[in-house]
Design a protein around this nucleic acid. Structure first.
Lengths: 385, 385
DNA sequence: CTAGCCAATATGAACGATCAAGTCGCCCCC
DNA sequence: GGGGGCGACTTGATCGTTCATATTGGCTAG
């Protein structure tokens, strides 16, 4: 259906001929020109099997010739579906998850459009304000559903949206809600930090620290647990090498300084955000150390700054394009009513190794560990689902 | 009108009560409950002056009580206007103009919403594809107009859109078209680099170089001319201190290295992009020099990386919020037909001084220049229009 | 030969708003 | 006292689709 309604520009390849607004063809004009009725034209697009092949041919020919596309408003009015997805535009904090949500929006638009949907964005300052805008969009029947990003503990939005009977999918797990009534897609942060630990262990590191966020942040804790799990599984003595503070470059620097001052300092740091990682690199610089040579650092999110810094920052990259694909697929399934019970989808990120992670200095820790690593390719597959 | 149609959630302050889709009130329900006709309800929202104060009061009361908002589809079908603005989502190249277009989209959504409009975004890979999507959106009557970003020489989009009779406004001047038929809003890049030169001259620099893009890029040339104009006006001997190359960190580094190897090297560099500036800083580091102490560097765009780098990068910041406001205002004026002839609007950016620009070392250049500087505030005003 | 059925297409109604043209009082003025 | 005008509200028509229900013609079975 989407395919039939979203043909190329009329007249085949080459730049589309511009059509002034006052002479956009309606279904009636197509019908008259093809010598059939409205409904037959409608069927040609929405239920081609109902037409005799030759009739179908003729009608499609006229549709293409005139460049007819059904009016969104009229169709929306009749069918009570807008073919539009609403999505809050998230603030792009420079150091933090900045680039991620930007990538998400791009991928979301692509995925939606390929299914015949459009994306409507809005910018708000708080969750409460988001609810207000969603409410407005729903009352005006401007969207069919929402993509919700940045879920967190105590998030009031899912509950509200559920109560409103709106279709929506969350990017992010429903932290704190063991039995959520809605669908979600998320990235397995723990798997990411775990792979980071394995990556570093594979480079010979055994004292691998972790810069995490204060307890109580969903994604932060998740990523922290991945580090915990992996170091424990590898039998690494790292339990004291943990620093926790609010996200940010300054925190990262402060935390790293503390850990580096320990009698037995870490030789590598897994950070749950790029901002923390940048701070850690700063702390190293201050001591005349070089990230990736003296101490390795791995960030999280692979934000734009990661590849710009020097040394370039190794970071855990999220499969955002796959996330967007899944978000759209799940949301549309729910809108169409195909999907009755909430679906869950957890995708794996992978480590992008750059200069900030390098081999452990021989003898620096007085001990080497042998580890078997999963091949990076096994992780990368997730992206090209 | 917009105000009347976009009231708060029903029931005054506090979180809006969710309304399931199957019982969203129509104008007819409001009419019945208020004991008036459809049209009177419509008038209450669109032409309040036509109602007797007490009737108005009563109708508005019911509207608020039921949380009625006119259906977008129905209204759009009848009035032939969608109250939606289309906008291409631009690729956010990490080092370059990345953050700028992200900020623009945020500001655009805010500005549009405050006028009762929504923003529909799409992501495409080329100008031709953009035309294709615009054509599709227009044929389906999905938008009233477009905001066009990233204009450049030989841009085919304005011509196409004009031919289509579509309302649109460009962010960016119509480079190469002396007599454009469309409206635009842009930032005065030359004024930005000029202010950067004055800023540096005020710090005592007289050998101020420029890292620019190859000739032929609209914004690049514009910014370069600002440097040219300012250094000439101040009588600074800088004409040889110019490097031009494609945008990027590597180019910036290479260009800076060349200039720093001159017999009389620059003591300060004005760069037409942050990416070039980052490259320049790298070149300095390689020579053991510190930006802002030994050689000053000023970038352009104030991208997120600027404040994350060390030393933090001085950069020319664009008044994006004001740009967005103007874009929306001009576009809506054009859609409403108020504005017949194309309007033009050029806003001034300003220098955000950080650590990468500092006083010239005494005696380093053998010559000091006295300059009167415009107060930074005069520039800053532009933002809060 | 005709009722019954199916495939293919056509016709009327509805979606929910606004526009254009009513209707109904009321007051003013000649 | 009646026509005219105006203010306040109502009623029919319409925007461009799709849904639900005809209509048509041909073919089959009884």
């Amino acid at each position: 259906m989407a395919a039939a309604q979203r043909g190329r520009a009329p007249g085949g390849p080459g730049r589309a001929r511009a059509v002034p607004r006052d002479k956009r063809p309606t279904i009636e004009m197509v019908a008259k020109r093809a010598g059939v009725s409205r409904q037959t034209v409608s069927n040609a697009a929405n239920a081609p099997h109902r037409l005799r092949p030759e009739t179908l041919q003729k009608v499609l020919g006229v549709i293409d010739e005139l460049g007819y596309r059904p009016s969104k408003a009229a169709r929306s009015l009749r069918t009570r579906s807008t073919q539009v997805i609403g999505c809050r535009l998230l603030p792009s904090n420079a150091g933090g998850t900045g680039g991620v949500l930007d990538r998400l929006l791009h991928a979301l638009c692509d995925a939606a459009r390929s299914k015949g949907y459009d994306v409507l964005t809005f910018s708000v300052a708080s969750d409460d304000e988001e609810i207000e805008v969603c409410d407005d969009l729903l009352r005006r029947s401007a969207v069919d559903g929402f993509v919700l990003a940045n879920t967190h503990y105590g998030d009031v939005r899912p509950e509200w949206l559920t109560a409103a009977g709106v279709h929506f999918v969350a990017f992010g797990r429903p932290w704190g809600d063991a039995n959520p009534a809605h669908s979600w897609v998320d990235v397995d942060g723990a798997a990411g930090t775990s792979e980071a630990v394995h990556h570093l262990a594979g480079l010979g590191h055994s004292r691998i620290g972790c810069l995490a966020l204060p307890e109580g942040s969903g994604t932060g804790d998740d990523r922290f647990h991945g580090w915990q799990r992996a170091t424990a599984a590898l039998g690494l003595p790292c339990s004291t090498l943990v620093g926790r503070a609010e996200d940010g470059i300054h925190s990262g620097k402060a935390l790293a300084e503390k850990l580096l001052s320990l009698p037995e300092p870490p030789t590598a740091l897994v950070c749950v955000s790029d901002a923390l990682a940048v701070g850690a690199v700063r702390a190293l610089e201050d001591r005349g150390l070089v990230a990736g040579r003296d101490v390795s650092v791995v960030g999280f999110d692979d934000s734009p700054v990661a590849s710009v810094l020097r040394p370039r920052l190794s970071s855990v990259r999220q499969p955002i394009e796959a996330v967007a694909q899944n978000l759209v697929e799940v949301l549309l399934a729910e809108i169409s009513g195909t999907q009755r019970r909430p679906s869950r989808c957890l995708l794996s990120p992978w480590v992008v190794a750059r200069e900030s992670s390098g081999p452990a200095l021989a003898g620096a820790t007085g001990r080497t560990t042998l580890v078997t690593l999963p091949t990076p390719d096994s992780y990368r597959k997730e992206q090209t689902r």
